[in-house]
Structure formats: structure tokens, C-alpha cells
């Protein structure tokens, strides 16, 4: 068996389109997942049952089912209840974003819980309301502690975007499949896709190691 990457390089355009698709869905899911996760995380920390219970049910459900099942549910099952079609991008973004929201909610909750009660009391003593204390005093301190875990989540989201290929959304792995089937070169096509993911993710992973080490040293 001889490796021959010429047929892969001949399809650089297709891979670039795939990379653009990967980055697009990654950006959507990162923003939606992490911001919705903050809302849910606050709910998990709340003392009022009407906020706590739905947030907890959401977290348990989305953490304890596979994300691919969620994506396929949004793609094949949800349209039965809706008067419109769901695009592959919508289905995959919904699945990955909601799943990431559930996981990041627990990161936010743990981060908020790790902040000393005295900080709350101090903020109250200065006359701040709960929301003010949360926004100005607690969250800024908690975010620093959450940073490594949140970066890890971002990496997980990036890896999860490959699942969008299961509903034929055009991203890197989907393009790899296409190239492999058109050129009969699965070895080179899939190796190229794996290498591209490594190039994207390796620096991010190393960055989280630095963050983790720095946090350990500071605390």
C-alpha cells in the first residue's frame, strides 16, 4: 500500500468548505451553549423551585443521553410537531448547544459555589441586590476558576461538531467522506481530516494545560 495524498490536495476546495462549515457550527454552538449554560447554571444554584427544578431536569436529561441521539431527535422527530422543516445545521446546532448548555451549567454552578460566602455578605453589606452581587462580585471571581473547565468544554464542542455529518451537514468529516467515496482514497482522506482536527485542537488543548497549571499555582 502506497500513500498518495495528491487526490486529497486536488480537493482542497472541498476541505476548505468543510472547515468553514465546522467553524460556523462550532461558533454557533459555543455561543449558544455557553450563554444558555449560564442561565441554566444560575437556575441550578437558585433557591426558588420554579427556577431550580426545570434547570435540574434539563441538566439531567441532556447530560444523561447521547448527543447523537439528541441531534437525530431534533432532525427526524421534532419536525413532526412543527409546521416547518429543520435544516441539518439547525438540528445539529440545537443538539450540540443544548447538550453543551447542560454540561457548562454544572461548571458555572460549581464555580459560583466555590466563591466564599463572605463575598456575598460583603456585597449585601454594601447594599447590592442579589443580581448586582452576582454580576459585579461573584461571577468575575468565579469565571477565573471556571476558565480551564470552560476551555475544555469548547474543545469538546469542537469535537462534537463532527456528529453533524450524521445529518449530512457540510463540515470537515462530511467532506472527508465525500472525497473518500469519489476518489477511493479513504486512507488519505480520513488521515487528512484527522490531521486537520489535530492542527485546530492541539494548540487549544495545550492552552488548557497552561491555564490549569496557572490556576493551581495561584490558588
Amino acid at each position: 500500500m502506497k500513500w498518495d495524498f495528491t487526490s486529497v490536495f486536488a480537493n482542497t476546495d472541498a476541505l476548505l468548505a468543510g472547515a468553514a462549515g465546522t467553524l460556523r457550527i462550532f461558533a454557533i454552538c459555543l455561543v449558544l451553549g455557553l450563554s444558555l449554560g449560564l442561565v441554566v447554571g444560575l437556575g441550578r444554584y437558585a433557591r426558588t423551585w420554579w427556577f431550580y427544578l426545570p434547570a435540574t431536569a434539563f441538566v439531567e436529561f441532556f447530560r444523561n443521553t447521547p448527543v447523537l441521539v439528541q441531534i437525530l431527535w431534533f432532525y427526524f422527530a421534532l419536525p413532526m410537531l412543527l409546521p416547518f422543516e429543520i435544516s441539518p445545521l439547525m438540528a445539529a446546532s440545537l443538539g450540540i448547544s443544548l447538550n453543551s448548555a447542560a454540561f457548562s451549567a454544572e461548571i458555572y454552578r460549581a464555580g459560583i459555589q466555590s466563591i466564599d460566602r463572605g463575598q456575598w455578605d460583603g456585597a449585601r453589606a454594601l447594599g447590592m441586590r442579589w443580581a448586582q452581587a452576582m454580576r459585579r462580585i461573584v461571577l468575575p471571581q468565579a469565571i477565573k476558576r471556571m476558565l480551564p473547565a470552560l476551555t475544555n468544554r469548547a474543545i469538546e464542542i469542537f469535537k462534537m461538531t463532527t456528529l453533524a455529518s450524521a445529518v449530512a451537514y457540510v463540515e470537515l468529516l462530511q467532506q472527508g467522506k465525500l472525497i473518500a467515496s469519489l476518489n477511493y482514497n479513504p486512507i488519505e482522506a480520513y488521515t487528512a481530516v484527522a490531521v486537520i482536527f489535530l492542527v485546530f485542537l492541539w494548540p487549544l488543548v495545550q492552552f488548557t494545560y497552561v491555564l490549569e497549571r496557572r490556576l493551581k499555582r495561584d490558588e
Binding site: 500500500m1 474543545i155 469542537f158 469535537k159 462534537m160 461538531t161 463532527t162 456528529l163 455529518s165 468529516l173 472527508g176 467522506k177 473518500a180 479513504p186 486512507i187 482522506a189 480520513y190 488521515t191 481530516v193 484527522a194 482536527f197 489535530l198 485542537l201 492541539w202 488543548v205
Partner: peptide, 17 residues
Amino acid sequence: TTPPLVQLFWFFFALPL
């Protein structure tokens, strides 16, 4: 670091060849 689905495709479609 690499996505598990990419690994699976590699082992299923590339490795046997």
C-alpha cells in the same frame, strides 16, 4: 484531541485497506 467519530471512520474505512 481528535474527535471520536473521525477515529471510528479511520479505523473502519482506512485501517482495513
